[in-house]
Design a protein around this nucleic acid. Structure first.
Lengths: 139, 139
DNA sequence: GTTACTGCAAAGCTTTTGCATCCCT
DNA sequence: AGGGATGCAAAAGCTTTGCAGTAAC
């Protein structure tokens, strides 16, 4: 929570609820997840407010947007360098805090200015392993 | 083209055009890119057909869906293991064919069955470097 | 002749936006 | 008081789907 306040943003009850929900959150929630959770405490909260707040936080660098889950954006309040492992069945995402020190090939380095990297691991989580079934993933 | 035909799918002119366009294609096109291109040769082609064909190819494992570009899915006919570098300004994607042999941390390995991984590099491409400007990326 | 594919249009989801009102500072 | 934030509803993207007609095999 500390990291969000006093940054020039007005602290409204809705935002406070969003900040509090995100702070330390390891679930990589989607906008809808956040909306539904916030609504429990502040039923007046609208979807637009959630999206606008996420956009504000994102552009301030207080959260990052994940594109691992095709079809919906997920948000991560952990802005430090780390990677993710997503269950291809239930879309659960867990953090991989490990430094892989990736060396980009020379050809790419000379033409592009590389600004970052992100590794996505795919797999089946323990819960889904128990249930069985079929899936088809994406990169 | 060879890799797509005779797989139980009916070969219609629309599909032939899609197969031909995708074969060896390194541009990582979106469904719309494909649709617009195919339409030049087969103006009757519909968006639905493109999506349905992509779905068919995807479920047969003949193409992979990339989730690097938030907001739109991109398709890659190169189904071998490789990674990608995307320009955060123009969304251009280039291949990174290099084996990084990533070792997943033990904690993750024991709980998940890891099925794959994919590295996304982010950067500014040569064309966009010339133009200058500001951006804000996502992971 | 079957069966699968096509095209159209409608619907489904997620995300964005305009605008009047509200309320934090 | 001023300016940013809220909420509503409409709109905008992208993707999926139902269905009748059509074409590949």
């Amino acid at each position: 929570m500390k990291k969000f306040i006093n940054k020039g943003l007005k602290l409204t009850p809705q935002r406070a609820a969003i900040f509090e929900y995100l702070d330390g959150n390891k679930s990589h929630p989607s906008a809808e997840d956040i909306y539904l959770e916030i609504k429990k405490r502040y039923p007046m909260t609208s979807f637009a407010t959630v999206y606008k707040t996420l956009e504000a936080l994102k552009s301030r660098g207080d959260i990052v947007e994940l594109s691992v889950d095709p079809g919906r954006r997920r948000y991560d309040p952990d802005t430090g360098p780390h990677h993710h492992l997503m269950c291809i069945r239930c879309k659960k995402i867990v953090d991989i805090h490990k430094d892989f020190s990736l060396k980009v090939p020379e050809e790419a380095k000379v033409s592009f200015d590389i600004t970052g990297n992100h590794i996505e691991f795919y797999g089946i989580c323990p819960d889904c392993k128990k249930k069985g079934g079929v899936e088809n993933g994406s990169i």
